[in-house]
Computed example of a mutant assay.
Amino acid sequence: MSPVIAVAVPAELRALFFPSGVEASLGGLGSLRVVDDGVLLGSPPVLAELAGPADVLVTSWPCAPVTGDVLEAAPALRLVAHTGASVKPYVGLDAFARGVRVTQAGAAMARAVGEQALALTLALLHRVNRFDGALRSGVAWAEAKASAPARHELAGSPVGVVGASRTGRAYAELVRALGGVVTVADPYLSASEAAALGVRVADLDTVLRGSRVLALHAPVLPETRRMIGARELALLPDGALLVNTARAALVDGEALLAELESGRLDAAIDVFDEQPLPVDHPLRTLPNVLLTPHEAGGTLEARARGGALVADEIARFLAGEELRHEVTAEQLARLG
């Protein structure tokens, strides 16, 4: 009997993940059950009904978590393939206890996140956000130029990267290609890997003290939650630039806001403790802050790669081959 693949991805996202059509991308792997347009996948009963007969469930970020009643309704379920990166909100540990395996498409987004982090880095170095904000607010031309802090080129700039993750490595590669001097803080990055990446390795405090730009690319784990607090921010040189396209939980938000309000640092931020970012949040008013709405990985190319990666993982699973992007119960338990 052909395996049943339930696709819990709304129409607007299916068009991005599977641009040639979900039938062309996944139909050859099994019998498809695709969510109807307009159905609210955040409802557990709705997801349970869709997943009921499925061997494989493809999920995306509007989905309710695959846990509890959803699992009970899908006794044949053997694989959850998530089109995004973080599976923490979408899969419960009870799924693993029942033998369900999990994979995700985070690797597909690494280049897009790395490129946006680079774009934000260049914008901060050249004070693009400050110039744009000043001119839009009616500040005189000469005053806008005179009031901006000193600008720098990326070539020769010391750039600190926290976390040699997929996105961290993509960012480091791009920065190095433009002449940036990269030092990475990651206790799991070996000397041989660092040499292959063309980067130096140092402890976090050393990286903080020596960075003109600090880019965050670490996962949220117990040991990384709020790892950048008031003490750490104080170690950054005056005028340093912070780029966060990873997770808001890596940073003490109140401590960062205090530094930004003082004007000592500039920052570009894609991720926030509260999302959507409230319209009255003070970050929205600061001229030294560049904001984007948690969209660093959202290029058309990254979405299409994500869909192709999911399709490949499903094919490998059904063929009894090793998954390349599997998430284990132990990994899920550690993720923040």
Rank of each mutant, 00 (worst) to 15 (best):
A11C: 07
L13S: 08
L13M: 13
L13Y: 09
F17V: 01
F17S: 01
F18V: 01
P19V: 09
E23Q: 12
A24I: 09
G28R: 05
L29A: 09
L32E: 09
D36P: 03
D36Q: 13
L41I: 07
P44K: 05
E49C: 08
G52E: 10
P53R: 12
V58T: 02
T67Q: 12
D69M: 14
P75H: 12
L77D: 11
L77E: 07
H82T: 09
V87K: 05
V87C: 11
K88T: 14
K88N: 13
Y90Q: 05
R98S: 12
R101M: 12
T103W: 07
Q104W: 11
A105S: 12
A112R: 00
V113W: 00
G114L: 06
Q116G: 07
Q116V: 13
A117P: 01
L118A: 11
V128M: 12
F131R: 04
D132I: 13
D132G: 06
A148K: 04
A155E: 15
V162T: 07
V162Y: 08
R169P: 08
E173Q: 15
V175F: 11
R176T: 14
L178P: 07
V181P: 03
T183V: 15
Y188I: 15
Y188P: 09
S190I: 11
S192Y: 13
E193A: 15
G198C: 11
G198E: 08
V199L: 10
V199W: 10
R200I: 12
D203M: 10
D203A: 14
V207P: 00
R209C: 12
R209E: 15
R212Y: 12
L216Y: 06
A218K: 00
E223Q: 12
R226Y: 14
R231T: 15
E232I: 03
E232C: 10
A234Q: 13
P237K: 08
D238R: 11
G239V: 02
L242S: 04
T245Q: 04
A246D: 07
R247C: 04
A248I: 01
V251P: 01
A255E: 02
L256Q: 01
E259F: 00
L260M: 02
V271K: 01
V271Y: 00
F272S: 01
Q275P: 01
V279L: 15
D280N: 06
D280G: 05
H281I: 02
R284G: 10
T285N: 14
T285K: 11
L286T: 06
L290A: 11
L291G: 02
A296Y: 00
A296T: 04
T299S: 13
A304E: 10
L309S: 08
E321F: 06
H325C: 12
V327E: 02
T328R: 03
T328G: 09
L332C: 09
L335E: 15
